[in-house]
Amino acid sequence: MSTLHVDWTRCDGHGLCAELLPEVLTRDEWGYPLARRADRSLDVAPGLEEHARRAVDLCPLLALRLR
């Protein structure tokens, strides 16, 4: 299973990642991504890895990584 990592020094709260990966992320009131799960993990299920890669590739500030 892959894990999504947010580089908070780069993230500017555009919110595109949460729109592309709503199963894993939601947004706070300023647009910054938050983990949707109660345990705050950013684990990406195998069936969602393609969507996670797309979110990483389209992040305007390159603030996401998939590990």
Rank of each mutant, 00 (worst) to 15 (best):
M1N: 08
M1V: 10
S2N: 14
S2F: 04
S2H: 07
L4I: 14
L4T: 10
L4E: 03
H5A: 10
H5D: 03
H5L: 14
H5C: 11
V6S: 00
V6W: 02
D7G: 11
D7W: 05
D7L: 13
D7S: 12
W8D: 05
W8E: 11
W8R: 15
W8V: 01
W8P: 02
T9I: 09
T9D: 14
R10D: 00
C11Y: 05
C11Q: 03
D12Q: 15
D12F: 08
H14I: 13
H14N: 05
H14V: 14
G15A: 08
G15I: 01
G15N: 03
L16S: 12
C17F: 02
C17V: 02
C17K: 07
A18R: 05
A18E: 06
E19R: 14
E19S: 13
E19I: 03
E19F: 02
L20E: 00
L20A: 00
L20M: 12
L20S: 05
P22H: 04
P22L: 07
E23H: 04
E23P: 06
V24N: 09
V24D: 03
V24H: 06
V24C: 06
L25E: 07
L25K: 05
L25H: 01
T26R: 01
T26S: 07
D28V: 14
D28P: 13
D28R: 03
E29F: 02
E29G: 10
E29Q: 11
W30V: 06
W30D: 15
G31Q: 01
Y32V: 00
P33I: 09
P33V: 07
P33Y: 05
L34T: 11
L34Q: 15
A35H: 08
A35L: 03
A35E: 06
R36M: 01
R36F: 02
R36P: 10
R37K: 12
R37W: 14
R37M: 08
A38Y: 04
A38E: 15
A38P: 06
R40V: 03
R40S: 10
R40I: 00
S41E: 13
S41A: 09
L42M: 15
L42F: 05
L42E: 02
D43I: 10
D43W: 12
V44G: 07
V44W: 03
V44Q: 08
V44S: 06
A45E: 15
P46G: 02
P46N: 04
G47M: 04
G47Q: 03
L48V: 04
L48C: 12
E49Y: 00
E49V: 15
E50H: 09
E50P: 00
E50C: 01
H51N: 10
H51M: 12
A52T: 01
A52E: 08
R53D: 08
R53V: 02
R54F: 00
A55R: 09
A55H: 05
A55L: 00
V56S: 08
V56T: 13
D57E: 15
D57V: 05
L58V: 07
L58F: 10
L58C: 11
C59N: 11
C59G: 10
P60D: 05
L61Y: 13
L61E: 15
L62C: 09
L62N: 13
L62E: 15
L62A: 14
A63S: 12
A63W: 04
A63L: 09
L64N: 08
L64V: 00
R65L: 02
L66I: 09
L66V: 06
R67W: 06
R67F: 04
R67L: 11
R67D: 08
